[in-house]
């Protein structure tokens, strides 16, 4: 089994794909910060920010709605914010009752709730776009350049490399569990919850030991190739003038959106 589902990069020949990864990281972060700063109900600014996203989608040649189609991942979390609908004082705009409770939705509450969702939805889209147009190893390089400590970027690089290997192992273990716990027809397979938890824990323990031993072998492979405790990396990227201009341009646009949102 191969986990291409874990690959978020979409190979395309586009201007955005070719940008230095640092540019994309910085613009993404600025965009998300700007979203967080937009006041509730800044509809025009929300729309402009969304247009910015559509433009970025277009320029990446992924299709206008690429990130839109994948942007519902954060939606379940909206439940957490649902109470603001009822809790902020304001004019009632609707009400419903569940069992003996009566819920009154206020206009101010609705405004805040929708604003939270829009901010989240805009931010998740640009994050989706970032990994669709930048290969993950290049993102790691970008963070190296942006002064994230090397020990962290190294751990992340290992994590990315072995994510695929170890999840393969997990799915082999899960399949082995399934084929052994097939059970007889009509009878619920497996024992009680405790027993099932123990089986899962054993799998985790087994995976841990295998990973631990693998790290030994990897360490040996690194030693064999001259590793002495200090890691060196080569930077494959160089900022070109275009990269600077694009960053400046994007930041300026986001700034204008922010101004409009605060008018």
């Amino acid at each position: 089994m191969h986990f291409d589902a874990f690959d978020r990069y979409h190979e395309k020949e586009s201007f955005v794909h070719r940008l230095d990864p640092r540019v994309k990281v910085v613009v993404t972060i600025v965009f998300i910060i700007s979203n967080a700063l937009l006041p509730d109900g800044a509809w025009l600014a929300f729309v402009l920010a969304w247009l910015f996203l559509l433009m970025a989608n277009l320029l990446s040649r992924l299709g206008v709605a690429y990130t839109f189609k994948r942007s519902l991942v954060a939606l379940p979390f909206a439940l957490i914010a649902i109470t603001v609908l009822f809790s902020i004082p304001g004019k009632p705009v609707g009400s419903f009752s569940i069992a003996m409770w009566n819920f009154v939705i206020t206009d101010a509450g609705l405004l805040r709730f929708v604003s939270i969702l829009i901010r989240s939805w805009l931010s998740v889209q640009i994050a989706l776009l970032l990994v669709a147009v930048t290969r993950f190893p290049d993102l790691i390089h970008a963070f190296e350049h942006l002064r994230v400590p090397a020990i962290l970027t190294t751990i992340v690089a290992f994590l990315y490399r072995y994510l695929f290997v170890l999840t393969d192992e997990v799915f082999r273990l899960l399949r082995a569990r399934e084929s052994r716990s097939a059970g007889t027809a009509g009878k619920r397979p497996g024992g009680g919850v405790l027993w099932r938890a123990r089986v899962a824990g054993n799998m985790a323990g087994q995976l841990f030991l295998r990973s631990y031993e693998r790290s030994d072998r990897i360490y040996n492979a690194m030693l064999s190739r001259g590793y002495t405790g200090h890691l060196y990396t080569l930077n494959p990227h160089e900022m070109k003038s275009r990269d600077y201009y694009v960053t400046a341009f994007a930041i300026a646009i986001i700034f204008i959106v922010q101004m409009i949102g605060r008018l």
């Binding site: 693998r214 492979a221 990396t233 080569l234």
Partner: peptide, 17 residues
């Protein structure tokens, strides 16, 4: 080879030594 190739990309791995 999964123990030998420990970097995300081929280039980085061959360059490691």
């Amino acid at each position: 080879p999964d123990d030998q190739l420990f970097s995300p990309t081929v280039f980085e791995d061959v360059a490691f030594g």
